[in-house]
């Protein structure tokens, strides 16, 4: 993570963005909306008011309607990419069975969640994955047969590990959370998820 870099990159982008604002009214409204958000929330459970603040990436996506100019997006994606920590032993494939459990769990980070308990992957909330689970969301693309279709060699392993660690490194304003980046999932858990998607033995690829 390089919060400083992020903030810097976002700052560099802002004058440009301000200049392209079609009407001043939009910027004014955004400012009012921010002020309203700031005054009208209260902390509850583990969800503190600090969660209302944007980091550099969120600022950029918010200000551009999730469609930042390509050169800024590339710059920030590179920053996000630089923050991805791959396992030091180079092993990216874990146990798909444990991956399935993590993918199933939607627990974590809400004000009703116990902060002491491990966080789930929420994957089935948004993705079709193993065929047995028919209750899956469609906010993200289907990942059924992911390894069968995309291979399971080192490059794709690295991609999937990185994508789960920080989806925004590949697609700056992706709707997918940055699970490793924010500390929701640890190295071991992400490995298990990589196996769920890529292991030939995983039901995903049967």
């Amino acid at each position: 993570m390089h919060p400083k870099n992020l903030a810097l990159a976002a700052c560099a982008a802002l004058p440009f963005l301000a200049a392209t604002q079609p009407a001043q009214a939009d910027a004014d409204r955004r400012a009012v909306a921010m002020a309203v958000i700031k005054k009208d929330f209260e902390p509850r459970g583990q969800a503190g008011l600090d969660r209302l603040a944007e980091d550099g990436l969120q600022t950029l996506c918010n200000r551009t309607g999730n469609n930042p100019p390509a050169y800024v997006a590339q710059r920030l994606e590179a920053d996000q990419m630089a923050g991805i920590r791959y396992p030091s032993d180079g092993k990216l494939l874990g146990d798909w069975k444990q991956g399935e459990q993590i993918a199933q769990s939607g627990r974590g980070f809400t004000w009703t969640d116990n902060p002491g308990l491990p966080v789930g992957g929420n994957c089935y909330n948004c993705h079709q994955i193993a065929p047995k689970e028919q209750s899956f969301g469609t906010v993200g693309p289907s990942l059924y047969q992911f390894g069968k279709l995309r291979g399971n060699g080192p490059d794709i392993q690295k991609y999937v590990y990185g994508k789960i660690f920080n989806a925004k490194a590949f697609n700056l304003c992706s709707e997918m959370p940055r699970f490793g980046h924010v500390g929701a999932l640890n190295e071991q858990q992400i490995r298990h998820l990589v196996a769920l998607l890529l292991d030939p033995e995983s039901p995903v690829n049967k």
Binding site: A33, M34, I37, A47, R51, L52, A53, E54, L57, Q58, C61, N62, N66, G106, F109, Y124, N125, C126, S135, F136, G137, T138, V139, K168, E175, P177, R178, V182, A184
Partner: peptide, 22 residues
Amino acid sequence: YRAGPYDFSCNTCHGADGKRIR
């Protein structure tokens, strides 16, 4: 407005047609 640990806004879940959570 996107913020928080998952970068979600209302529109993440309610900004396009035909989406589901589970």
